[in-house]
Amino acid sequence: MDGLIAFASQSVRLATPILLAALGAIFCYRSGVLNIGLEGMMLTGALMGVVGSTLTGQPFIGLLAAAVAGAVMGLIFAVFAVSFLADQAVVGTALNLVSIGFTGYLFRLLMTGTGETQNVPGFGAMPIPGLERIPILGPIVFNQNIFVYICLVAVVLLQVLLYHTGFGLNMRATGENPRAASAMGVNVFALRYEAVIASGLLAGLGGAALSIGALNLFIEQMSAGRGFIALAAVTFGRYDPIGTLLASLVFGAADALQLRLQVASTGIPYQYIQMLPYVVTLVVLAVVKGKARAPKSTGVRFEREAL
């Protein structure tokens, strides 16, 4: 039983970076933007988290730096994909390249060659008094680091925002039919800017969850595809915050299982065990196939009628 609880708790912890990025992806998908750049936003967030935390000795500053860096990446994405009407997938890929280059450059300059940063000040577990003593649920959910709590709050907020506010209605309308939304008086451009910047902010936090939330170090390209797995998690979660929460837990569990199998002597080469999250992603996508329908205008640029 204790083993199971420890496993669940680890799954939750490993699900947070994916979930944070995935929540950002929901913003994008729902407003009709396919954000391939999440991976790069996470990576940038991961580095800025470490940099902010190292320079000030305050992990909280690192967290803020990561969020701001992610939001700036989101802004750049929006300028090219929303204003300049460029192909969203290509903009995302370009941003991914930029962030691999930028983080690799900065990191190599800062660390001159060690390949990873020394242990930086990070977030430890912050048990929530009272709640942590609930049997089973307590240790799994309420004895975690700050990022898990941020996630929980964000899921609730996003759920309310999406289904119970005018802004959410506008956003969903834009994702399905931007032209109709625009005719209704929704400023599609502004809305997509907001969505993409919010997603960058969340993805940046997701990156920080990886660097100063979990490992307390930065490794080049440490996001390792999680930005893409986040996109898969949103599809699996049917573009819904709570569904995505559950989907992210599946990927978190795959990650936790992978780590455990590597330590346990199973005789399976570790490379195949490391493949697990990626294979799970493919299988999940194949199983979900047509059942989860993406918002109709996803990936389609919106051109204002001639002015």
């Binding site: 750049i76 300049f84 903009v91 941003l95 930029v98 450059y105």
Partner: peptide, 20 residues
């Protein structure tokens, strides 16, 4: 650092897109 190349590549692509 040679990773500067990725930065150059990414920016080239972004500005190509902007140019279009």
């Amino acid at each position: 650092p040679s990773t500067l190349v990725y930065l150059i590549q990414g920016i080239v692509v972004l500005f190509l897109l902007g140019g279009e």
